[in-house]
Design a protein around this nucleic acid. Structure first.
Lengths: 212, 212
DNA sequence: GTGCAAAAGTAGACTAAGTGCAGAGTAGCA
DNA sequence: TGCTACTCTGCACTTAGTCTACTTTTGCAC
């Protein structure tokens, strides 16, 4: 890796770190791009060369996870169902306290998540990530699991939104003060329940004719 | 209704119509707020009194549907499962060619939809609607169907994303040129398949051990 | 009808995100 | 050492959205 490339990476990281710590301290809307540029010691124009929008200063950190579900499905062992692969992957991530799951004690991650949750513009960008995640997962299901296009899209939509719901719930518990180790058993149980629901359907939740 | 109120409604409609027809003709990003205000014959400042953001000029038309799933669940006949109520409601809407389903021939609706699909900012706003829709549905399920909080949230997430996926698919077929009457049978079949999948789960899609 | 308080609309200045451009600095390589 | 390509910068510009102070219109009491 050349000096030029290394320098670019360092500049990028410096800008993002300056931005996030300012946003966490003062709030997303209370900090201007100009202030971020000053804190990172670059010009405004350079900042925009690295990050096309203010939101990207924050959410670019999640861009790597966009295609994770699709990758998991494509990389699953022969004979394993896509849903099983995704379930195991999610439970492994929980066990490893991967930030993606929302189960974490790392203060920086919690602060960052707090920022996301309290800034609608950032949440909107996260939802867009979910959408591409869903599209890619649908393609992976269609191509590798002998699934017709519509069911693949429907399944992908369900899976992505369920994983998102699980992670949100975990983060909210963490922000409410739960320690990750303490929250783990409930989080794992919730994940299992969620994947059971995905596999077995909502039918079981509501018997068509309840007790009189 | 007083003159003042009637006038406000007319002004609001005039602004929105001017905006949408300009956006459809030239594209969302190619038309400025100032141009919309001029076309609607109001000042820029007045426009912002009616619509807080440029996106709202378009998406406010969908705001009424936000709480539709929750309403359907709350209004279902005694003894009917929430999922059955939602399924029937969606199939009725399809049959009536409700714009919400994406099954329509009304040119204005199709153009409007084309605008949404081709403008990421507008799609992002629509996804935010979905999120509040989901939250309200979860509350309705929790309160009226004896469902615990987590399963209610998970189910709501699945249902809303599945309905959205169905409607998107219908709209895309319509934009590809399909007439609503011709597309109806396939759309109804797709909806039934989707709700079957919701009720019965994804387990049936992928037998855990496929043929060798 | 006339007058008055409240609501609605307007003008214009202001902030901040994001873009385009033309020039200065710096890395890579001969 | 010097050439070339990449990167950074300053500055002017557009546009979304806000703030404030002022005018017009409406509803209503008389």
């Amino acid at each position: 890796m050349t000096l030029r490339e290394r320098k670019k990476l360092r500049t990028r990281a410096a800008i993002s770190e300056a931005a996030i710590s300012l946003f966490i301290e003062h709030g997303f809307d209370q900090v201007s791009i100009t202030q971020v540029a000053e804190a990172a010691d670059v010009s405004r124009r350079t900042l925009f060369a690295y990050f096309p929008t203010k939101e990207d200063l924050v959410v670019h950190r999640f861009a790597d996870h966009e295609d994770e579900p699709a990758r998991v499905v494509r990389a699953r062992p022969a004979g394993q169902s896509p849903l099983t692969a995704l379930r195991e992957h999610y439970l492994d991530a929980l066990h490893a306290q991967d930030p993606m799951t929302g189960l974490t004690d790392v203060p920086e991650v919690l602060h960052l998540y707090d920022l996301l949750r309290s800034t609608p513009q950032l949440m909107a960008r996260m939802l867009q990530f979910n959408e591409t995640s869903e599209t890619q997962l649908a393609a992976a299901l269609h191509e590798t699991a002998d699934t017709a296009e519509l069911p693949a899209r429907l399944a992908a939509a369900q899976i992505v939104s369920v994983q998102w719901t699980l992670s949100i719930a975990n983060y909210d518990r963490a922000l409410a003060g739960a320690r990750a180790d303490d929250a783990y058993p409930a989080a794992a149980a919730a994940a299992n329940q969620a994947f059971d629901l995905l596999a077995g359907g909502l039918g079981g939740l509501w018997p068509s004719t309840p007790l009189p």
